[in-house]
Design a protein around this nucleic acid. Sequence first.
DNA 1: AACGAGACCTGGCAGC
DNA 2: TGCTGCCAGGTCTCGT
Length: 271
Amino acid sequence: MPELPEVETTLRGVAGPFTGQVMLAVTVRNPALRWPVPVDLNSLMQGRRVERFSRRAKYLLAHFPHGTLILHLGMSGRLCIVPADEPAGKHDHVDFLFGNGHILRLRDPRRFGAVLWAVGDPLQHPLLAALGVEPLEDKFGGDYLCRATRSRSAPIKNVIMDSHAVVGVGNIYASESLFRARINPKPPAGKLSKPRCERLVREIKATLQDAIEAGGSSLRDFFGADGNPGYFQQQHFVYGRTGEPCRVCGAAIRSIRQGQRATFYCPKCQR
DNA sequence: AACGAGACCTGGCAGC
DNA sequence: TGCTGCCAGGTCTCGT
């Protein structure tokens, strides 16, 4: 479910209600996520106050005085805010009960998500230390992408999805950004000209930013019992539109497989 | 160093 | 209706 815009939206939705709150109890119903949830999580966190929330790539971080809770939503995870007495469903694996009487609940049917605890600088955690630049930061520019791609023979679409190069560009936004930049997803990344790198960077930023704004505008729905994330409602240019007419030129959208993932593109607009 | 394939899981849907 | 097979928004690990 979550790509970067959704994680960012989740961060904003969670930071408001829970920053400064005391953790009363952690309930782990199923520790078998991508990695085992630490068994002593409750004793680690009970009675401690969250100082702030932040995000690195698609990881959500809850900072405590003595360590950091690291959350990842995987492919199907979401965080819900529910009253303390709300019964748990089949896929509600971890509950964080806070002093404000609300539970922050991790629901993750496919269990690709993660709940981890880091002592010391969380950015030095093995999962975070090797990550590439944040796409919305200034450091991610045409220069950076150009340098990062010179030695790469993999298709440009695969490389912008490589979290060691740049984080947070998932399968949907990779296709959408390439369409907006009018760049074909297939050629080797190393062949992309400097101006095209510049354009691609610009469109990645704009695509993600638009999606965050769309997600932010439906925050209430997102956290409601059956709410859909906002960006779900936005119209994609190419993603999931195989055979349908391109919104710009009318040509039929094509789909191919790259790196075992579906890629969507317009054969006429994207050269 | 960089690439591609495989792995982890469950649910939904198309096709028979 | 029920079964089978395929697909899914992530990303680490391993063999080449």
